[in-house]
């Protein structure tokens, strides 16, 4: 780990000022925000991130970590710990996909440290990114190439990749957020703004070193999840090599509104297979207006994976991903909801 200046902001506006050197998730940004530290500290030890300044976002107080659930939706403070939100009775009842995505992530210790805001910004687990002794990594060193494309890529992305980067977004919570059409509340130099969660992370777009649309110094302060008939019939299915404390090799966040036999609304988020948090509206559109059956689920899954590209070791992923989507949809359909079910 290299030497750096450690700064502690008195409040969020000061943090925004101190964090002016953050740069859309770029590895070489001169400043990095520190919240729970569960990603940043690792990457600093590995010397992947070598910021000159680390700005500690001390929990700025109760409002910033509050969980509010109303008939209009949920507002999740970005400084809430993953474990707190995973255990919240209202979230569990009204937004099970969110609770499960948090519960199935990381380990108990990490969930107790990590914040929601930091969690959605966690970096890829691509081993070529996480070890600077590999010279080719466009995400770490722009223009240096991609060692993973012809290297060991068993858990690399099959959706949203290009010849510059096939790294995979590793998180779970973000998959639930994108499925539920969440918005992100940001505080920056020019005040606060609200953006769709889907526009927080950038695609590869030939510049994998740029990961987010956050402006310099901008801090995530809350997630807004709209209410909907589909949120209660929702789940997060995570397929992984071991039973706990491991990233997905495929995951699906699904939420359904079913009336009679007909699917009125469907939301499908995909993890463990895409460059960025991924939502498949192609798959959703196939389901909406039709009964949910094995074959309609399979058709939706096929649509979701239509643009998938494998690079050798991850050639198994499209098939596993399709199965994951089908299983998640059928399990969501089978959920027994208590009164007011939709």
């Amino acid at each position: 780990m290299r030497s750096f200046v450690f700064e502690r902001a008195a409040d969020l506006p000061q943090a925004v000022k101190l964090g002016a050197g953050t740069r859309q998730g770029q590895t070489d940004a001169p400043a990095q925000f520190l919240a729970g530290g569960t990603t940043l500290i690792d990457l600093m030890k590995l010397e992947v991130l070598t910021p000159q300044r680390v700005v500690h976002l001390q929990s700025p107080g109760a409002p910033w970590s509050a969980i509010e659930v109303s008939p209009n939706g949920a507002r999740l403070g970005a400084f809430a710990k993953m474990s707190t939100v995973a255990d919240d009775a209202r979230v569990l009842a009204q937004y099970p996909v969110i609770a499960q995505s948090l519960q199935l992530a990381a380990s108990a210790q990490i969930r107790n440290m990590a914040t929601l805001g930091g969690n959605v910004l966690q970096r890829t687990r691509c081993p070529y990114y996480r070890d600077p002794s590999w010279s080719a990594c466009n995400k770490r060193v722009p223009g240096s190439g991609c060692a993973a494309i012809h290297g060991f890529n068993r858990n690399h992305a099959i959706l949203g990749v290009d010849e510059n980067c096939i790294s995979q977004y590793p998180g779970d919570f973000a998959i639930a957020l994108i499925a539920l059409d969440a918005r992100v509340e940001l505080m920056g130099a020019e005040g606060t703004r609200l953006i769709p969660f889907a526009s927080l992370h950038t695609g590869v777009q030939s510049q994998p070193h740029i990961e987010t649309t956050l402006k310099p110094g901008e801090i995530i302060i809350a997630f807004h999840v709209p209410a909907g008939a589909w949120t209660r019939r929702s789940l997060y299915l995570k397929v992984r090599d071991r039973a706990s404390y491991e990233f997905a090799i495929a995951s699906a966040a699904v939420a359904l509104s079913i009336e009679g036999e007909e699917v009125r609304e469907a939301r499908i988020g995909l993890g463990g297979m895409a460059y960025r948090p991924w939502r498949s509206q192609e798959a959703e559109n196939i389901l909406i207006g039709n009964p949910l059956t094995e074959s309609s689920a399979a058709a939706a899954a096929a649509a979701a994976l239509k643009s998938a590209i494998g690079h050798g070791h991850n050639d198994y992923k499209p098939e596993l991903a399709r199965r994951t989507i089908v299983r998640a949809l059928l399990e969501a359909k089978a959920l027994q909801l208590s009164s007011g079910a939709s």
């Binding site: 687990r125 081993p127 070890d131 060692a147 012809h150 290297g151 060991f152 090599d241 071991r242 039973a243 706990s244 404390y245 491991e246």
Partner: peptide
């Protein structure tokens, strides 16, 4: 990594061993 004959998962996060749940 076949081309370079270098190990990939040379850490305890990526070299998987069972956890209690397994």
């Amino acid at each position: 990594d076949e081309g370079s004959a270098r190990y990939i998962n040379d850490n305890l996060a990526d070299y998987l061993i069972p956890v209690n749940a397994d």
